[in-house]
Design a protein around this nucleic acid. Structure first.
Lengths: 209, 209
DNA sequence: GTTATTACTGACCGGTTAGTCATAATGGAA
DNA sequence: TTCCATTATGACTAACCGGTCAGTAATAAC
C-alpha cells in the first residue's frame, strides 16, 4: 500500500537503485576523489544504508568500473558518429572534434573520471584496463583514421598518424588536468573552448600540406 | 671507533640520512605510488627503522614535498638556462626544448612525480601548490616568453602565447600519462623522442608565419 | 490473514598503518 | 671511564573504513 519505507521516507524502487547509487558515487568521486569517498557517504547520498549499496554492487571498485564503462561508451560512440558521418575534406573535422571534446571537458564529469582513472589505475588495474580498452583503444584509432584520410586526400602532409593523433589530443589532456588538478588549488581559469580553438588552428596548419 | 650501528651494520652518517631517505622514498613512490607506499618500507630501504625516519621528516607528506621541490628546482633551472642562453631565431628552440623534455620523461622520475602530484593534490593541496608554484608558474611563462619572442621577431604568427605554450606542452603531458599509467597496464610502448620530434615539427609549422 | 519473498539496516569485525614513546645503543668530550 | 647528547629502535595505539551478517520491515502471494 504505502510503498514507502517508514524509516527513510523514500520510496522503494529497486530498479532505480543502481542508477541512483551511481549518480551519488559519481558526484562524490568527482568532489573528493575515489579513495577519499566513503561507502557510507555514497549510501547516504543515494538514500539508503551502506549495506544496501552492497546489494547492488559487489564492492567499491565495481562502482568506479560501472561509471568508467558508462562514460566511455557514451563519448566514444558520439565521437565515432561525428567522424564517420563526415564527408568531404577532413580538415574542418579537426576543429569540430576538438570543439566537441572541449565541450565534454567543460560540461561533463569526463575530466574528473579521467583524473580518477589516472590516480587509481595502479591500485585497480581493471579500471585502467577498462579505460585503455574502452576509450584509448577506441578513440585513438578514430583520430588516426582521420589523419590518414587527410593524408590520402592530399590535405595533410605525410605525418605519422599515431604520433599526430596523440599530438592532437595531448593539449586536451592538459586541459583536463588543468581543470581538475590546478584550478582547484588556485590556478587561473582556462577558457577551454578558446584554447581548443587556438590549438585546432595551430595543429591544422601544422599538418596541412 | 667502529662508527657502525651494531644492529643494522650500516655506518652512522646523520648528514646523509635525509638524502638516503628521499632516495628510498622516490624509488618506492615511483614503483607503487604514494598512498600504497608504507613508511616501514621507506625506512627499510633507507636502512633504518620507521621511527628513525620521523627524526628527519615530520610526516609522510614532508617526503613528497621535499621530492617535488627538489625535482621542480632542478628541471626548471635547466630549462630556463636553455631558453635564456639561446640567441637568434627562436624557431630551433622549439625542437630543442621538446627534445629536452622528452629526455626528462624518458630518463628521470619526473613523470612518476607528476603522476603522484596529480593523484595526491586533492588530499594534499600543499603538494599541488608546490608544483603549481614551482613548475607550472615557472615553466609556462618561460614557454610563453619563447612564443612572444618568435612573434616579435616575425617568425611566428600572432597566436595567443598562453594557449600556444599549453598546446606545446600538452602532448608531452600525454607522454607522461602514457608512460606512467597506460604502459604499465599493457599499452604499446611510446617512442617518446620520436613522438616529441614529430610534435615539434607539427607545432612549429603550425605557429610559423 | 498468514506465509514467503524481497529490500533493507544497525551493529560489528578485522585488517591496516601513520605516527608516538619509553627505552637503548653510540661515540665524542672531559 | 664516565658522562651525555645524539641517534636510533621495538612495541604500541588510535583511528579509520571496506565489507559482512543476523535480523527487521515492506511487499507480494495465497
Amino acid at each position: 500500500m504505502t510503498n514507502r519505507s517508514v524509516i527513510t521516507g523514500k520510496p522503494r524502487r529497486p530498479e532505480e537503485r543502481p542508477a541512483e547509487i551511481l549518480a551519488a558515487a559519481l558526484e562524490l568521486f568527482a568532489e573528493k576523489g575515489f579513495s577519499a569517498t566513503r561507502m557510507d557517504e555514497v549510501a547516504a547520498r543515494a538514500g539508503l544504508s551502506k549495506a544496501g549499496v552492497y546489494l547492488y554492487f559487489k564492492d567499491k571498485t565495481a562502482l568506479l568500473k560501472a561509471l568508467v564503462n558508462e562514460m566511455a561508451g557514451a563519448n566514444i560512440s558520439v565521437a565515432r558518429g561525428i567522424v564517420e558521418a563526415h564527408e568531404g575534406p577532413v580538415s574542418p573535422l579537426v576543429a569540430t572534434i576538438l570543439a566537441f571534446l572541449a565541450g565534454q571537458v567543460r560540461h561533463t564529469r569526463f575530466p574528473e573520471l579521467i583524473k580518477i582513472v589516472i590516480s587509481e589505475s595502479r591500485a585497480h588495474p581493471e579500471v585502467g584496463q577498462l579505460y585503455l580498452d574502452g576509450v584509448v583503444r577506441q578513440g585513438l584509432p578514430l583520430f588516426e583514421g582521420l589523419i590518414r584520410r587527410g593524408i590520402a586526400s592530399g590535405e595533410f602532409r605525410n605525418v605519422d598518424p599515431s604520433f599526430a593523433a596523440k599530438a592532437m589530443l595531448g593539449p586536451m589532456l592538459l586541459a583536463v588536468i588543468w581543470k581538475t588538478v590546478l584550478e582547484p588549488i588556485g590556478a587561473e581559469a582556462l577558457d577551454i573552448e578558446a584554447y581548443a580553438a587556438q590549438h585546432a588552428q595551430i595543429f591544422l596548419k601544422g599538418i596541412q600540406s
